[in-house]
Amino acid sequence: MKIETIGVVGAGTMGSGIAQTAIVAGLRVVLVDVSETTLATSVASLNARLERMVQKGRLDGPSCAAAVQRLVASTDYRSLAGADVVIEAATEHAAVKVAILREIESTVAPHAIIATNTSSISITSLAAALERPDRFVGIHFFNPVPVLPLVEVIPGLQSSSETVDSALQWARQIGKSPIVVSNSPGFVVNRLLIPMLNEAFFILAEGVATAEEIDAGMRLGAGHEIGPLALADLIGLDVCLSIMDVLQKDLGDPKFRASPLLRELVAAGRLGRKKGRGVFQYNG
């Protein structure tokens, strides 16, 4: 399958990162969001990141200009009609994703691959909402998308081998290193990572150490580039909580119980970097 144009639905952190990675790799990208304000903010942020790449010598001026020209932003799903792959990158709620995926399916060409960037929701259950579940697959990127090379490709029970092959092809085409994982709650990375972050909240709540000391312990003692609490802030505390709730519900094991402190911070609106405050305070 020749992949030249992709669609990304959802202009938040993940959608913007996927769009940036694809245009730098030479693909045309249609970025769709229902909010014009979100689109404008996302495109401005994306362009600023490209400019920083030029300043750091990671991208030359002409290549940057060409990449910008390959991006189209729209609030109209009909703009996805010519896409070869469309990936949904909306909020981590199944009902929202199903509504978006159905909208995508009603618009795209019969050959197009439809994907979701979900970090924990069952690919098989999402596929069941579509008329052509065989062309649906999970393609899970990691934040920040332009930096981290891993992509989890997750076939649902209904996904065809051709769909999975096309997903792997696209991931490699944009410079990523894909792994194929089973449709199990949390897949591979989040099933290991998010419970570890959740445990950091238990340790913080118990007063075993301060947030700074917990993060320093894992950076200096375990060789992590970023501490677990700072990483939770980067991911989004609401996303971490959502994944923990999915793990507990779908696996039925009490070890996946979300920390009450994590739940409390989310209830307070302290969601991490995107809100300016999570475990830590952020300025700018």
Score class of each variant (00 low, 15 high):
111 H>F: 05
185 P>K: 08
187 F>V: 08
66 A>K: 11
220 L>I: 08
228 P>H: 09
43 V>F: 05
109 A>Q: 14
133 P>E: 10
252 G>E: 03
187 F>H: 03
133 P>A: 10
135 R>M: 10
188 V>F: 10
241 L>E: 10
200 A>L: 08
141 F>V: 04
164 V>T: 11
248 Q>H: 11
171 A>V: 12
46 L>T: 02
152 E>H: 07
136 F>G: 06
86 V>G: 08
155 P>G: 12
93 H>L: 12
190 N>R: 03
106 S>W: 02
158 Q>L: 08
168 L>G: 09
244 M>S: 06
202 F>H: 14
223 G>Q: 08
264 E>P: 00
156 G>R: 05
134 D>M: 06
90 A>C: 14
86 V>Y: 08
154 I>A: 10
272 G>L: 09
246 V>T: 12
255 K>A: 13
240 C>A: 15
51 E>N: 14
233 D>K: 02
119 S>H: 04
273 R>W: 03
126 L>K: 03
122 S>F: 06
198 N>C: 08
85 V>A: 12
283 N>R: 13
39 L>R: 02
257 R>Q: 14
149 P>K: 15
192 L>R: 01
278 G>C: 11
224 H>R: 10
261 L>W: 06
128 A>P: 00
118 T>N: 08
235 I>S: 10
245 D>C: 11
270 R>H: 15
197 L>Q: 07
119 S>T: 01
158 Q>D: 14
30 V>I: 15
168 L>P: 01
28 R>A: 15
192 L>K: 03
68 V>P: 00
129 A>H: 11
63 S>K: 12
43 V>A: 12
7 G>H: 02
62 P>C: 09
146 P>D: 03
239 V>W: 05
130 L>C: 04
130 L>W: 09
52 R>N: 12
227 G>Q: 08
